[in-house]
Design a protein around this nucleic acid. Sequence first.
DNA 1: ATCAACTGAGACAGTTCTGTCTCATGAGAA
DNA 2: TTCTCATGAGACAGAACTGTCTCAGTTGAT
Lengths: 187, 187
Amino acid sequence: MATDRESVLLAAVGLLSRQPTAAMDELARAAGISRATLHRLFPGREALIHEIGALALARMEAALDAATIDEGDPVAAVRRLADALIPHAQLVAFISGESRLFDDDAINDAWDRVDARVAALFLRGQQSGAFRIELPASWLSEAFFDLLAGVGWAVQDGRLAHRESNRALTELFLGGAVRRDQPGSAD
Amino acid sequence: MATDRESVLLAAVGLLSRQPTAAMDELARAAGISRATLHRLFPGREALIHEIGALALARMEAALDAATIDEGDPVAAVRRLADALIPHAQLVAFISGESRLFDDDAINDAWDRVDARVAALFLRGQQSGAFRIELPASWLSEAFFDLLAGVGWAVQDGRLAHRESNRALTELFLGGAVRRDQPGSAD
DNA sequence: ATCAACTGAGACAGTTCTGTCTCATGAGAA
DNA sequence: TTCTCATGAGACAGAACTGTCTCAGTTGAT
């Protein structure tokens, strides 16, 4: 059925994120193809994981481009970023959990690049007075990805409706859990 | 060296969280013991994982007890909870990533119990007006654990100093990223 | 010094996974 | 229809992992 490489990769992510030790057999079945075809598409488990990483980072970089996060109000930029990244939250969740076990330099470089771009957004926001300066920009960046991954899990497991995911992410990340009376920026 | 069961479990967590497919061979080496001794301590990989889950949840329940989160100001309770849980952030990170693949009902029940207690704290805070009501308490609970796990990764990888971890977690979670002039509650 | 208990190293068979191969089937193009 | 091409099913050997066992060395207590 799903013969194109991308849908196979996405199916693999769906299984691997829940069952990291899944065998090629199961990965093939999850994608609806045979083990032979899976091997024809990807010469080995390592290559499969590697391409998942490449796909995830390509989509993240594209999302960053589309969100134009280096322009305009930083808060609005974060909302655009969430919009652009949430469709790929599952991939992000996989990557951020697995990113340290990639040997490939190209993958690690791409990840650092993505992380740096997001951190630059928060640094810019801190310098413009939009974001709090008590927390390092690198931590804001990491926390954003942590929550994005969390949203991905929650949606995948049905604990969070897809259409609520953006609000859940941005409202908590931007505004925190503590109630405050006057809105810093309305929806 | 590390003959007691707990240090073996903690060493295993340290490796497994980075390399979920690690073999018993590598797990033994990570704990500084031989494969034979590892098998003497835990009859098989499944038992090992199972005991990690049991240890993690036991520590989390103990932390919840110690933090007395069902008393007093909800914001202060969250700070106490962070204090009590951060020492076990690595275990929490492992559990929250791996929790769905536990077959054991006892583990799942304990996890649900922990999650319910934390969610109850947030619900209480919402009812008392301390926390925002726009976000479901269950999501606040999940996001708190996501960020706790993220802090665990960041500390383990040296991206965050241990003594800053509490502030990083609670400030972001409670106050969000957006700057606001008047403090909702001081430290 | 002697003994008991524990440990590491290594060997071992059994199982599982992997990567490759062949062959038959089915879909689609000419 | 006929041909081509991709696929699935299955077989296969090799590798890796697992769980168990034996044996020798070390530690610590008596």
